[in-house]
Design a protein around this nucleic acid. Sequence first.
DNA 1: AAACTATGGACAATCGTTTGTTCATAGGTA
DNA 2: TACCTATGAACAAACGATTGTCCATAGTTT
Lengths: 344, 344
Amino acid sequence: MRKQRQKATLVDVAAMAEVDVSTVSRVLRGQSEQRIRAETRERILEAAEKLNYRPNFTARSLRMSRTFTLGIVVPQLDNPVFSAAIRGAENLAAQHGYSLLISHRDLGEAATTIAKLSQMNRVDGLLVASLDADEVLHSDLAEANVPYVLLNRQLSGAPFSVVLDSREAARKATEYLVSLGHRRIGHLGGRLGGFNAAERLAGYRAALDAAGIPFDPALVTMGDYTFGAGRKAVRELVRTDATAIMAATLVSAAGAMAELRLAGWQLPEEMSVIALHDADFAEMLFPALSTVMMPTEEMGRVAADLLIRKLAGGNPEPVRALPPGSLMIRDSTVAPRPGAPRSK
Amino acid sequence: MRKQRQKATLVDVAAMAEVDVSTVSRVLRGQSEQRIRAETRERILEAAEKLNYRPNFTARSLRMSRTFTLGIVVPQLDNPVFSAAIRGAENLAAQHGYSLLISHRDLGEAATTIAKLSQMNRVDGLLVASLDADEVLHSDLAEANVPYVLLNRQLSGAPFSVVLDSREAARKATEYLVSLGHRRIGHLGGRLGGFNAAERLAGYRAALDAAGIPFDPALVTMGDYTFGAGRKAVRELVRTDATAIMAATLVSAAGAMAELRLAGWQLPEEMSVIALHDADFAEMLFPALSTVMMPTEEMGRVAADLLIRKLAGGNPEPVRALPPGSLMIRDSTVAPRPGAPRSK
DNA sequence: AAACTATGGACAATCGTTTGTTCATAGGTA
DNA sequence: TACCTATGAACAAACGATTGTCCATAGTTT
């Protein structure tokens, strides 16, 4: 037996229950329960059930001027950081009856995307992740005229951000290398000028300072966060006497390790490597990569929560910093060899 | 100077241009251009521009009973296969003015998700990816009563599928190993009973047959497609005289290589490994993994295209099979060593 | 000059909800 | 008995577009 093909509307339910649509609406929304006689409520509920009634979201949206949809803009989808954030955001959104509209356009087109989503009232608010602080983005968001939350980024003028405490994460990672006995520690960082890159560098220096190890600029290389950049950057590091590397991301660490292996280095004996962020693929590398976990899924969740609270008329705190997670000690970090450091 | 805070509606534009809203609508939708005087059109366009008018998507959706939104349901987000498919789908959808609503719930909840999205008219159609053929899914989709396309899966009763030709991909990968001189080739496959697993096995056998190599069941191990399963499965393979492995997925190949290395094997000299699918991380492994590329992004694009054509009233072909892409020869595949195969 | 026909736009209904307001009735109070 | 007050539910007006229909006007035909 087939359910009726046409979707039932409030009108249908009202007709069957012999009441007005407004009454049906009130009963089904579950609000102002007092004003409805129990017997009437029963009748309505029964009719709705029998007709398999489901509210029409579009109509509700139009009437309420709210879409109950959040947009999330990410530069790339295959990056575990973003996919975790999306997962977190979607979970929280779903809990509050919101859906997630996704857009992965890169920054060039992000402007268009943001404009489209917001100006056409497709979303109530936006979650925006980006790879590097982009000022165009900012003005577009300002003009878009919808509430938005920045992910792992702080921009002057942006109302809300949720960021990972990358300074503390970098400090923690470096501190661990120090605790293993390393004193010449390279840092494979991100673009100079980027907010997070500076934060990580600060954390790196803090750990060095705490251990009384002098800071040596020659041990710091900057690049973007790609595999290729990791490979390239490590070529500078091998000319120093570094015995360990603290890399900003998994992929740059992977690049570094690949390059070192190609150059004939024994890992981890001749070079320890630790990276920030964690994902399944850390353990697929060789040697399995030690990391400091970062709560990226949590970041997505918190950002969505912030946005939804804001939309509900709340007044959430403008910026939330999430502390790093635990140290994942795998096989890529060992104590430095007692002898002289390898030199090329 | 700030744009007016309130978004302009058709009514505002109509008032400024001193015409009826219906006229404005017709002009702005660009249709039936003949019936409007050029001078009037000018006036309307100008007013719309001046007011920075943007159509309200929700209102349009309600009136037209179409959301111009596609839902995509994936079991996981961090899997490169799915993120590529999403990327492809989103790109194509955007080209046609559609947005993508994402949902990553795993199968248990997929039912709920599907129901929610479709019954509440949030989407016009669904793109559904799953890890294993799931019958619950099917009935839920049938009841959902919206057009849908299955990704890389065929289910009896499902109206549309777009699949990757994994049989041909497996054949191609195996053929390559044969061409290198391997004759004892292991296969690390997926769950027996799964549609794709059977296809891959068939491709594997086809390549063997073509080369006149007898099929040996001992060389075939099945499991799910995870890293752990790859590790476990390879322990059986090392007891055979296999000199090469054709793995169903990147991660299972990664698992196999990790396990082999731990057992002290020299890669790729003592064991060649090739996998189906390709992603950045294939080259981050050690040794960099040879693969047969699979057009997963294309799959997403084709699926979205199919769905949109269907929604437009077209009559697209029910199933599309996409041929595998090219062979990515990296460092994990070499000719077998001339001597006797290693045995444990 | 009368009648017809395009042409250009206005009118109005509609999509399915939500929600402020009104209204009838019943019970309670003075 | 007359009046007031809750109570429960109907009425009706939105939300902002799309689209079928109708009606002037001007131009064309006979």
